[in-house]
Amino acid sequence: MLRYIATRVVSLIPILFIVSLIVFLIIHLTPGNPAALILGQDASRASIHQLENKLGLNEPLFIQYLDWMKKLLTGDLGQSVYSSESVKGIIISHIGPTINLTVFALVLTLLVAIPTAVIAVWKRNTLLDPIFISLSLLGVSIPAFWLAILLVLIFAVTFPIFPVAGYVPLSRNFFNGLYHLFLPAVILACVETGLIARMLRDGMLEAIGQNYTKTARAKGLSESAVLLKHVFVNALIPTTTVVGTMVAGLLGGTVIVETIFTIPGIGQLLIDSIYRRDYPVIQGVILFIAVIYVLVNLLVDLIYTLLDPRIRYN
């Protein structure tokens, strides 16, 4: 097991290398002088030149990348052009709301998706199946921002049940915090549920075709017992991988939801930084999200392996 974990962790190195390369290239792709971008338009030529030397921008791209990597490995993500604070500090101060929102949405999604998928499989030969498929397709076809506008109009403006925007840290007031996060989380979850429920259903339908299911059925177990004991449990294990996908979807979705609800998280930080042309922060946020995504997937894989030891030998 330890050996497996070790190989899995080692296999991340090339991925993280590629991730860092892409993030590095984003700023070097920009038309124009990176030093001028970092310092802003009103910088003097002398200070641009000075920074070029300091950052080694006159060096070959390869050397620049190595230098950048060296700093990165010591946890130095650079400095914001806008507020001149460290990018690391800025990201840390924005991470809380995003984590809360993502986890909340994740829980909501699973709470709805799992029972829905089980029912869909159970009643797979009835009219519920096409309805389920249509709804899940509809779910992935609605733009999150449009849904957000409509839900805000209905549940926050016309019937003021939920706040239209804002964020209360959960540490300050847990329930009020959740209350503020509810609508944003529902919107993220709505979009995600269609996809996840569909994947769970497909996984379970496949499990139904398996030999063990047939054996169980042959033993004379009732349909619901077969479904719950054999199909569902067996399908659940591979679908832990789904959580990894969800994290990507949710992190992408937070950009929009945080902007609409003015939640001071990573997503809003990214959009604001793009408007401010604050490239070091843009770089930092993108890198951070990618690394989180890679790590979550590693974690999911490891949990998965623990649950189902067979995979290790593949």
Partner: peptide, 16 residues
């Protein structure tokens, strides 16, 4: 700092 006009206006209506 609330850049979105809609949020400013809705936030005021709902007491934010």
């Amino acid at each position: 700092i609330v850049k979105d006009t809609t949020v400013r206006q809705n936030g005021l209506k709902t007491g934010l």
